[in-house]
Design a protein around this nucleic acid. Structure first.
Lengths: 196, 196
DNA sequence: ACCGTGGATGTCAGTCACTGCCATCACTTA
DNA sequence: TAAGTGATGGCAGTGACTGACATCCACGGT
């Protein structure tokens, strides 16, 4: 027997999700969340550095998935190939069963600038983490930064499409499509006359 | 004679910059800033929605510069050409004289996660603004989003390089170089064998 | 010269996020 | 059995931010 119920952060997150969903983020205090699972505000802040962080708990997992995709790639893979592999590896963190939950979570974030800000920052953090991993593989500094940022961009767009109303394609499909489009778009020529 | 000294937000910003630089961001209260220019905390928050915002006051100007670059482009310009023009147009907001000030400002931001978060969010906001402008020109939705994100990415990287120690190239030069590199990097082939 | 209006400011009380410090309370280990 | 440990509670305090209301004086009109 454990002295305390296990999975405290998970229970807090679940409670927060429900309260934010019904009352709204700003109308829910940290105390509300804590009390709804029989804990105190003080304990809430021992598990989360921030009130916002409760919504982002567990995100490290998919950052890891990106990194594993890179680690598993052959040594001679080009930067963009690494991006593709990282994306496909991350895709397994977004099975169709998670769509519904992701949607409701995203609804909450969409209604609060402070949460959107945190989300932007997490995406930026992903990019710098990936850039480090690429550099560690010997990829040139600028190329690593650009490839990592591209990965984060594609991920962000793919995710919002995956969440989108009526969308049925898998995350992996969407991500691949967006990545292809990026490559087609940014591919040279830079020159004056672009193709229609 | 004006009833109050004009340029209140500018004076507050200047004071904030100095206080943040000497004492540090967290060790400086909004009251400190306001009092140092003879105002009250309440007035500070009438000019800035946030304590952080005082550091980002005036940023709208260079977002405008991006938009003007897009507006001035020929109607048949490709998305990536629009990105290039937006970047070059924005470059005029970063003359060499501003380097020193930008550097000290960036030092402050680098020492505070909350400020970095705001910065990430501003960059994300730039991307969505640019995407809207591209869509308004008839650019396809996904292409517009990707191009806009690319512009923001290139801008971010170029800016940090421009600020970098010992850097002497102009912002325009750097931005062009980074953009070229992005095009070379993301250009196809996607295929399995990448080039060394 | 007088009046009224409006925009920028001041005052004040209040809420809430977040922190530091110390106590508690089992359960574990020596 | 005694000391150790990890998660929690209690509490006081700071600082960011808000809403409501008062003030103040240049300015335009009369």
């Amino acid at each position: 027997m454990a002295r305390w119920e296990p999975g405290t952060p998970e229970r807090l997150q679940q409670a927060a999700l429900e309260l934010f969903g019904s009352r709204g983020y700003e109308q829910t205090t940290a105390t509300d969340i804590a009390q709804s699972v029989g804990l105190t505000e003080r304990t809430f802040f021992r598990h989360f550095s921030d009130k916002r962080e409760v919504l982002f708990y567990g995100q490290d997992a998919f950052v890891q998935a990106f990194l594993e995709g890179i680690a598993a790639a052959p040594p001679d893979a080009s930067p963009m190939e690494l991006v593709g592999r990282a994306l496909q590896s991350a895709a397994r963190m977004f099975p169709d069963e998670r769509r519904a939950r992701s949607r409701t979570r995203q609804l909450i974030i969409a209604q609060n600038p402070a949460l959107q800000e945190r989300e932007s920052h997490k995406l930026a953090g992903l990019a710098t983490t990936l850039a480090d991993a690429l550099r560690a593989r010997g990829v040139d500094d600028l190329a690593a930064t650009l490839a990592a940022e591209s990965a984060a961009t594609v991920f962000g767009i793919a995710f919002s499409q995956w969440i989108g109303k009526g969308e049925t394609r898998s995350f992996a499909e969407i991500a691949e499509h967006v990545l292809r489009e990026l490559q087609q778009l940014t591919g040279r020529p830079t020159g004056s006359r672009g193709r229609r």
